[in-house]
């Protein structure tokens, strides 16, 4: 199928772009990497009246270290994030998640902020943003606000962004030395969207993991930040049985959706397995790191 007719705008500045978004109820859409938007246009699943191509707006480019964290502009492509030494060092969870995102050609064009804006329930970036509670910066003509990722994602393809707002950047907090991270997902084939996945952050003390943030995604309408996980500490010598119990407690928070990837209950069981294994892996990595330290 071929895309329906639309008006194409390619503003050179952010102000122009924001002006184009004024007074719009979804009929005007931002075109970032186009790796989702153009696919839906080619299927005539969406028919925006106006496309605002932001690819010329240079202020939206770049990965930068700032006091408050690592900033990714709206034009930062998945590939840039995947290959950034800055990201690898300061936001390791993001680096761990990116290999799961699509394939090389799609990563060369698709953007992190586009992924956040789209809020696909099976996408990796929203889960990472929620795990780290990244700050998402929304701008509209004459106003700028920032929303934490935990407030941003509100439901299936639903976010706190208003139609006249653009995500101009996202800021990921830098990892502390005592933080540990885990990322995994189950998908049918590599590069596919996740059936169910996990993004985890914790504070480590030896092999113990405390202050857990467990995000479950893919199975839920939007990334689920497990309330149960918050109160859990994992002892250094936790047995498989302990981990199994912890995983069961945390995945009890899920409200998994039934779809072609499986029934919700199947995903809950799969998530519990992934969680047990990932927690164990995080513990082992923490211990190995400690052992390697002089």
């Amino acid at each position: 199928m071929k895309a329906p007719i639309f008006i194409y705008k390619r503003p050179a500045s952010l102000d122009e772009a924001l002006a184009l978004l004024v007074d719009n109820d979804g009929g005007t859409q931002v075109l970032a990497g186009g790796q989702s938007l153009l696919a839906t246009l080619n299927m005539r699943l969406s028919s925006p009246a106006i496309l605002v191509d932001i690819n010329r707006i240079t202020v939206l480019q770049g990965i930068e270290a700032r006091d408050d964290g690592i900033r990714l502009g709206a034009l930062v492509r998945h590939r840039e994030v995947l290959t950034s030494p800055l990201v690898a060092r300061d936001v390791p969870l993001l680096a761990m998640a990116l290999p799961y995102v699509a394939h090389m050609a799609v990563r060369n064009r698709g953007t992190t902020c586009g992924s956040l804006a789209l809020a696909d329930p099976s996408a990796e970036m929203p889960a990472v943003a929620v795990a780290l509670n990244a700050r998402i910066v929304l701008e509209k003509k004459g106003a700028r606000r920032s929303v934490t990722a935990r407030d941003f994602f509100q439901g299936l393809y639903q976010t706190a962004r208003d139609d006249d707002e653009m995500i101009t950047e996202v800021i990921f907090p830098k990892a502390d030395a005592d933080e540990a991270f885990g990322f995994t997902e189950l998908s049918r084939r590599h590069g596919d969207f996740a059936t169910v996945g996990l993004a985890i952050r914790a504070r480590k003390a030896g092999g113990a993991l405390n202050d857990l943030d467990v995000i479950i995604f893919g199975s839920e309408p939007c990334p689920l930040h497990s309330p149960a996980a918050a109160g859990i500490s994992i002892a250094s010598n936790a047995s498989d049985k302990d981990l199994t119990e912890i995983a069961a407690t945390i995945t009890a928070d899920m409200e998994p959706m039934d779809n072609h990837q499986g029934r919700g209950e199947t995903k809950r069981a799969q998530a519990a397995t992934l969680l047990r294994r990932t927690l164990k892996d995080m513990q082992q990595r923490a211990l190995a790191l400690e052992a390697a330290q002089p």
Binding site: M43, R188, R189, H190, G191, H260
Partner: peptide
């Protein structure tokens, strides 16, 4: 080809009908 009970193909795109890829 996944059909709903009322006869609609539910995975009629290349993203949803899975064919083998090199990685697997």
């Amino acid at each position: 080809c996944i059909y709903s009970t009322d006869g609609q193909l539910e995975n009629g795109s290349l993203a949803d009908y899975l064919v083998p890829m090199a990685g697997e």
